[in-house]
Design a protein around this nucleic acid. Structure first.
Lengths: 195, 195
DNA sequence: TACATGGTAGACAGGTCGGTCTACTCATGT
DNA sequence: ACATGAGTAGACCGACCTGTCTACCATGTA
């Protein structure tokens, strides 16, 4: 990957994430990154292709970060509860590699390109599916019945997205903590069924 | 409220909800609504004031609709589970007054105006708080301990927002059903503690 | 040496943006 | 009879948008 190309993607992400895609013009990205317009159109066919590349870039960064965090979890309930500790760090700007929290980039982009068959919207959907797979793998380690794995994975994904929304729209910095408490309650409920 | 003013708000909402605020120009709203530009600037000081009025309009409609649904619930667990039946109808376009589902308008607008101190963002936050109050009132009817009321209200809000996000970004039309199942599990967990 | 490649700076084109303004119509209340 | 206010149509302004293009500069390779 070319130097300038990456530079463009990083700058574009920073601005898109902060202000939204439609609110940021090509020229702003160029002046901020110090790259010439011709170079941009050498690497990307247009703005949409740049947005697409930015989505893939963020998908990779976010996925890697979360996988790293989940891999560190001790076996047992911690395998899933770590998810909410990671979210808590994200919401409260303790993860420098993700930049200051401004909601989920993919939810934000989905909001701007809300048609389900829009390619950018589909990239956002794909990201969410990858993250859900990551969570499912954690739930699998708990050793509960397959039906319960599905249900619990769904619940964790719902709580995760809910926490992101609360943290962003309502500025609720405790959202991850609340979600963790709910997840713990579900976990205990599951156990009592088994006992 | 003037006839033309309401017409502008309705048309603007339809377009903003479908395409996003930044993606829709004043001229499109005018030609779609058949209102003259001068009339728009007679009723609103600018585009931002129009967006603001649209947010208030949608807040009122959504709040009234949800309150109506929740009021119909039978006493007992149904008081809170009705919430997810209502969401299910919304996600699957069985609520004509809310227009075809394109996510939560307030989450979408928050994504485009993500600075917490932006007035439009704050209106979105205010809407979410009003809806949360509605839910809290339902939880109150369950007659559980005050501490549990807080926790359960938080959980329901998280599940609600999560369901909206899943339904929108991932196009998961079953999101409300999944959230309902999780809520039911929490409800049963709460009861087993009391027994 | 000759030439392709990736880069810079920035003028330019065609279009759209939000917003202002003029000139006109029409109903209503005094 | 007439002023007022709400409305229409649409020209116009300056700013900004995406995207193209020219002209030039390095650098590495055949």
């Amino acid at each position: 990957m070319s130097d300038k190309r990456l530079q463009l993607i990083k700058t574009a992400f920073k601005l898109f994430y902060l202000k939204g895609v439609h609110a940021v013009g090509i020229n702003e990205i160029l002046s901020e990154s110090g790259v010439a317009k011709k170079t941009l159109y050498h690497h990307f066919s247009g703005k949409e292709a740049l947005v697409s590349a930015v989505l893939e870039y963020r998908d990779q960064r976010f996925h890697d970060w979360l996988k790293g965090r989940l891999d560190q979890a001790k076996s047992g309930p911690d395998k899933v509860l770590t998810l909410f500790d990671a979210l808590d760090d994200w919401f409260n700007d303790r993860v420098t590699e993700l930049l200051p929290f401004h909601g989920c980039f993919f939810i934000n982009v989905s909001a701007e390109f809300s048609e389900p068959n829009n390619p950018l919207h589909q990239l956002c959907c794909h990201h969410k599916e990858r993250i859900a797979q990551l969570i499912r793998a954690q739930v699998d380690t708990l050793g509960i019945e397959p039906v319960a794995v599905d249900a619990f994975t769904n619940a964790l994904c719902l709580l995760k997205e809910g926490a992101i929304t609360l943290a962003h729209v309502q500025g609720d910095r405790l959202a991850a903590t609340k979600a963790k408490a709910t997840a713990l309650q579900l976990l205990q409920g599951n156990q009592s069924v088994r006992d």
